[in-house]
Amino acid sequence: LEELEQFARTFKQRRIKLGFTQGDVGLAMGKLYGNDFSQTTISRFEALNLSFKNMCKLKPLLEKWLNDAE
């Protein structure tokens, strides 16, 4: 759980530094990986307001997006 919290904080910082909005991330993930995510989902991930199971599902996709975006 602590690792997920740390990743969520780091993800938000890096996303902002790269100049992407939460909506940009959701749209890009849909185009790149075929998984559409709303701005609300990205927001809830960053705020740790998703279930642990959903956080675990999203983490690898967000890590991949972040690596591809950098």
Results as ranks from 00 to 15, higher is better:
Lys53Phe: 10
Glu2Lys: 12
Glu46Asn: 00
Lys64Val: 10
Phe11Gly: 01
Gln13Asp: 11
Leu4Asn: 01
Leu58Asn: 04
Arg9Pro: 02
Lys57Gly: 13
Tyr33Gln: 08
Ala28Thr: 14
Asn35Met: 10
Gly23Ala: 15
Asn49Gln: 15
Ser51Gly: 10
Glu70Trp: 08
Gln6Gly: 10
Cys56His: 08
Glu5Trp: 08
Leu50Met: 10
Met29Tyr: 01
Gln6Pro: 05
Gly26Glu: 12
Ser51Arg: 07
Asp36Ser: 10
Gly34Val: 05
Arg15Pro: 00
Gly30Cys: 09
Asn35Val: 07
Phe20Arg: 08
Leu48Asp: 03
Gln22Lys: 10
Lys17Asp: 14
Asn35Ala: 12
Phe37Gln: 09
Gln13Lys: 11
Asp68Ser: 09
Glu2Arg: 09
Leu48Phe: 15
Phe45Trp: 04
Pro60Arg: 07
Gly19Glu: 03
Trp65Met: 03
Glu2Met: 15
Lys64Phe: 04
Lys57Ala: 09
Gln22Cys: 13
Thr41Gln: 09
Asn49Cys: 14
Phe7Pro: 00
Leu66Asp: 02
Ile42Tyr: 02
Ile16Leu: 10
Asp36Arg: 11
Asn67Asp: 04
Leu61Trp: 14
Lys57Pro: 02
Thr10Met: 13
Ser38His: 04
Lys64Asp: 13
Gly26Phe: 04
Arg9Asn: 09
Ala8Ile: 08
Leu27Pro: 02
Lys31Ser: 11
Gln22Ile: 06
Gln22Gly: 04
Asp24Asn: 07
Gly23Trp: 08
Lys57Asp: 02
Leu66Ile: 14
Leu27Ile: 08
Gln6Ser: 13
Gln6Thr: 13
Gln6Ile: 11
Leu66Met: 11
Lys59Glu: 03
Asp24Ile: 01
Phe20Lys: 13
Glu46Leu: 00
Ser51Pro: 13
Thr41Glu: 11
Leu48Asn: 12
Arg14His: 06
Trp65Asp: 02
Lys12Ile: 14
Asn35His: 06
Ala8Phe: 01
Leu32Met: 12
Asn49Met: 08
Leu58Gly: 01
Pro60Phe: 10
Gly30Asp: 09
Glu46Cys: 00
Asn54Pro: 03
Arg9His: 03
Trp65Thr: 02
Gly26Ile: 05
Ile42Glu: 01
Gln6His: 03
Lys59Phe: 05
Arg9Leu: 08
Ala69Glu: 14
Pro60Gln: 07
Lys17Arg: 13
Phe7Ala: 06
Leu48Glu: 14
Gln13Arg: 10
Pro60Lys: 03
Gln13His: 07
Thr41Lys: 07
Gly30Lys: 08
Asp68Ala: 06
Asp24Trp: 03
Thr21Ala: 05
Glu2Pro: 01
Lys31Leu: 07
Asp24Gly: 06
Ala28Lys: 12
Ser43Ile: 12
Asp36Ala: 10
Ala28Met: 10
Met29Asp: 03
Asp24Leu: 04
Phe45Ile: 02
Met55Ser: 09
Arg44Val: 02
Leu62Ser: 01
Phe11Trp: 04
Ile16Pro: 01
Lys57Asn: 06
Lys17Leu: 13
Ala69Asp: 03
Phe7Leu: 03
Leu18Gly: 05
Thr40Arg: 12
Glu3Ile: 08
Gln22Ala: 13
Lys53Asn: 03
Leu1Ile: 06
Arg9Glu: 07
Gly23Arg: 13
Ala47Ser: 15
Ser43Gly: 13
Arg9Phe: 08
Gly34Ser: 09
Ala69Leu: 11
Phe20Ile: 07
Asp24His: 09
Phe7Gly: 02
Ala8Pro: 02
Thr10Gly: 10
Asn49Ile: 11
Lys53Thr: 15
Val25Glu: 00
Glu46Lys: 02
Leu27Val: 14
Leu48Lys: 15
Ala69Pro: 05
Ser43Ala: 13
Leu61Pro: 11
Thr10Ile: 10
Arg14Ala: 09
Trp65Leu: 03
Gly34Phe: 04
Asp68Gly: 09
Gly23Pro: 06
Phe45His: 00
Val25Tyr: 00
Tyr33Met: 09
Ser43Trp: 10
Ala47Lys: 10
Arg14Glu: 05
Met29Phe: 05
Leu4Met: 11
Gln13Thr: 13
Leu18Thr: 04
Lys31Phe: 03
Ala28Val: 13
Ser38Ile: 06
Leu48His: 14
Val25Gln: 00
Ala47Val: 06
Arg15Gln: 00
Gly34Ala: 08
Lys31Glu: 09
Ala69Ile: 14
Arg15Ser: 00
Asp36Asn: 09
Lys59Met: 09
Leu58Val: 13
Met29Thr: 08
Gln22Tyr: 02
Thr10Gln: 14
Leu61Tyr: 08
Cys56Gln: 15
Phe20Gly: 01
Gly34Met: 04
Glu3Leu: 06
Arg14Phe: 05
Arg15His: 00
Leu32Cys: 08
Leu66Tyr: 10
Val25Trp: 01
Ala47Asp: 15
Phe52Trp: 12
Glu70Gln: 08
Arg15Gly: 00
Gly23Cys: 11
Leu50Asp: 07
Asp68Lys: 12
Thr10Asn: 14
Leu58Met: 13
Leu1Phe: 11
Lys59Tyr: 15
Ser51Leu: 01
Phe11Cys: 05
Ala8Val: 09
Lys59Leu: 08
Gly34Tyr: 09
Thr41Ser: 09
Leu50Gly: 06
Leu66His: 02
Val25Cys: 04
Gly23Thr: 07
Ile42Lys: 00
Ser38Cys: 12
Leu27Gly: 10
Lys57Gln: 12
Ile42Phe: 02
Trp65Glu: 00
Leu48Cys: 15
Leu48Ser: 14
Asp24Phe: 05
Gly26Asn: 11
Ile16Ser: 08
Gly19Lys: 07
Glu5Val: 10
Ser43Gln: 15
Gly23Gln: 08
Lys53Glu: 13
Met55Thr: 04
Phe11Ser: 03
Phe45Lys: 00
Met55Pro: 01
Glu3Asn: 06
Met55Glu: 02
Tyr33Asp: 11
Lys59Gln: 07
Ser51Cys: 05
Lys59His: 07
Leu32Ile: 10
Asp68Ile: 04
